[in-house]
Design a protein around this nucleic acid. Structure first.
Length: 560
RNA sequence: UGCCCUAUGGUGUAACGGUAACACAGAGGCCUCUGGAGCCUUGGUUCUGGGUUCGAAUCCUAGUAGGGCAGCCA
């Protein structure tokens, strides 16, 4: 396997920080966490974070928790909780018995809030929404203090208790921290800790009608879990002083937050909101549509966990904004599947070939190697007969000057079989090719060494009467521009590639594929990697998804 | 006209003060019963200007450029 076996990711600034923390005894172990909000499916960007958090812990012999930051009941759902667990597991990571929810800490968080109020560090603000917004100021304009800021501790305690008891409508009061309305860091301008939301929570039901804000819940959750290094993305950099302030005021365990740049992929959108829109507006078949950058989409597309982990290692982690080339992801899956996928022959767009000098009812069983990269995968038998299918792309009636495949009067090798020559093109009334009449050279049988005839090309084929009909879904990038959501005035939906999916219903595969099981991956020789669709494929109707094409140097020649 | 962060070949990431490395992509070539795989070759005055130093991609400083921050979202 290509994956490095030393459990080591390449050097990065986070490891340097951890090394230093360990050396200085700031912490004596490494404990990380992956903290998704269950409001959507995980995508390849999350995979980067998952690999980072679990990878770091593994490398330092530490632990990683899975914690759902479920502080907003109006946006979250168990469907997402389940999918996230499945995806993390599938990626190959194990949180063991450390599955947590921020909602597990609602009681503790409430106690913490009381503590803050008693210290005079939090107050109930009864200003209307608009007023709070107004008083917060702007990045370049200091905020002003709320008139409720000077309420007594007793008054705050009583009001907060009543908020919890459900005595107020949504939005009537909020609990705010008492910090500094003039701070240049907006996060420190008396941030809201609790809001009233009479909504049912997917775990706590109707127990609560006040819910903690993310900023109030997140850092304390990390603290409660004894997290040493809270790895998060760059946009929370400005929140760090606030989180530090909370744990200092509360005098509780102080995790160290380290921010890194999130993953961006060209020709891809990563925003959960926008992915949700693709699903809701049915531009794709669901969160697991093989064109989606979600983990479930990549899985259905045929990506392996190993390939994604290697990808994450390869792209590294740093603080500068980045856009990774899609080819990097494609390389990762080709690299992995090249080593492990069984080779098989399938004809996407069949043209019939008749071998005029091959006996009518004869069938030969030819030897075919299952994987030239891995001898242990052995070989199999391929039936060969008078009538075959080859791919339309492998025949040109008027060949391009560098075309090495079949054309009238030309010879080509049939992989694992014979060299054939095209004698005649048979067409129907509309001029469409019906079949190719060819002859085969009996001395050129593969493996016999009875002929030293050389031809420039080798093509794949399938025996017509033995072939199994399959459906093939050819996927291409979902968007036709490299940065689909970069223009403010153009809806990213307009950049959807109309050819992102092509369905071929008449493809033919060698009989071995008859027993292919959902999720199984193959290389269709000379074409690419394909996997049996996990949803729509059945024994009667095999459906294959194209994971990725093989590198195609012919395409380059052809385009010149 | 505030605060925070960032700046290395086309794209990423490394180099931890001693003369730029690795991967992907691109371009050449070799090899080949997958035009696959594999192998070889080929790109950078390290954003700019000052400074510190025997020596700077690395430290300081001033610019410039990009990103983030004004949800009772996360």
């Amino acid at each position: 396997m290509i994956e490095n076996t030393e459990n080591k990711m390449p050097p990065n600034f986070i490891k340097e920080i951890i090394d230093e923390d360990l050396k200085n005894n700031r912490y004596t172990k490494v404990h990380t966490r992956f903290p998704p909000e269950p409001n959507g499916y995980l995508h390849i960007g999350h995979a980067k974070s998952i690999c980072l958090n679990f990878g770091l812990a593994k490398e330092y012999a530490g632990l990683t928790n899975l914690r759902f930051d479920d502080t907003n009941p109006t946006k979250e759902d168990v469907e997402y909780v389940d999918s996230i667990k499945e995806d993390v597991k599938w990626l190959g990571f194990d949180w063991e018995d450390r599955l947590y929810f921020a909602s597990d800490y609602f009681d503790t968080l409430y106690e913490y809030a009381i503590k803050l109020i008693k210290k005079g560090k939090a107050y109930v603000d009864s200003s209307p929404f608009e007023q709070i917004k107004e008083e917060r100021g702007a990045p370049t304009k200091p905020g002003v203090e709320s008139k409720y800021r000077s309420r007594t501790i007793e008054e705050n305690l009583e009001l907060f208790q009543k908020m919890k008891a459900g005595e107020f409508e949504d939005g009537v009061h909020v609990l705010r921290a008492n910090i500094d309305m003039t701070s240049p860091n907006m996060n420190l301008r008396d941030p809201i800790l609790y809001r009233i939301r009479h909504a049912e929570h997917h775990r706590t039901g109707n127990k609560w009608c006040i819910y903690p804000m993310y900023d109030w819940a997140h850092g304390q959750s990390d603290s409660i879990e004894g997290i040493t290094h809270s790895i998060c993305t760059l946009e929370f950099e400005n929140h760090r002083p606030l989180y530090d302030w909370f744990v200092e005021q509360l005098e509780i365990h102080h995790p160290r937050q380290i921010e890194f740049a999130r993953l961006n992929l060209n020709y891809t959108i990563m925003s959960k909101r926008k992915l949700l829109r693709l699903v809701e507006e049915k531009h794709v078949s669901g969160w697991d549509d093989p064109r989606m950058p979600t983990i479930s989409g990549l899985r259905r597309r045929g990506y392996t966990p190993e390939s994604i982990r290697n990808f994450a290692d390869r792209i590294g982690v740093a603080k500068r904004d980045n856009v990774i080339d899609l080819s990097q992801l494609e390389f990762s899956i080709r690299e992995d599947l090249n080593k492990r996928a069984m080779r098989v022959m399938a004809v996407l767009n069949p043209i019939k070939v008749e071998l005029l000098n091959y006996p009518e009812n004869e069938v030969e069983q030819l030897d075919a190697i299952n994987n030239p990269e891995d001898e242990s995968m052995g070989s199999r038998k391929l039936p060969f007969s008078r009538e075959l299918f080859i791919d339309a792309d492998d025949f040109q009636e008027v060949p391009h000057k560098k075309f090495h495949r079949l054309s009238p009067g030309n010879e080509v090798r049939l992989r694992y079989a014979y060299i054939i020559k095209c004698k005649e093109v048979v067409k129907d009334a509309n001029g469409n090719i019906e079949k190719l009449l060819c002859t085969f050279d009996i001395d050129t049988k593969s493996g016999t060494g009875t002929s030293d005839k050389k031809v420039k090309g080798t093509i794949h084929w399938v025996s017509a009467k033995h072939a199994v009909n399959i459906e093939v879904r050819l996927y291409d990038r979902l968007f036709n521009v490299s940065a689909p959501d970069s223009e403010k005035n153009i809806d990213f939906i307009e950049h959807i590639n109309p050819n992102s999916l092509a369905v071929l219903k008449n493809s033919m595969a060698e009989p071995f594929l008859k027993n292919a099981k959902p999720g199984e991956r193959f290389q269709f020789e000379r074409l690419g990697y394909y996997c049996v669709d996990s949803k729509d494929s059945s024994e009667n109707k095999l459906v294959f998804n194209r994971t990725v094409t093989l590198r195609d140097s012919w395409a380059k020649i052809e385009n010149q």
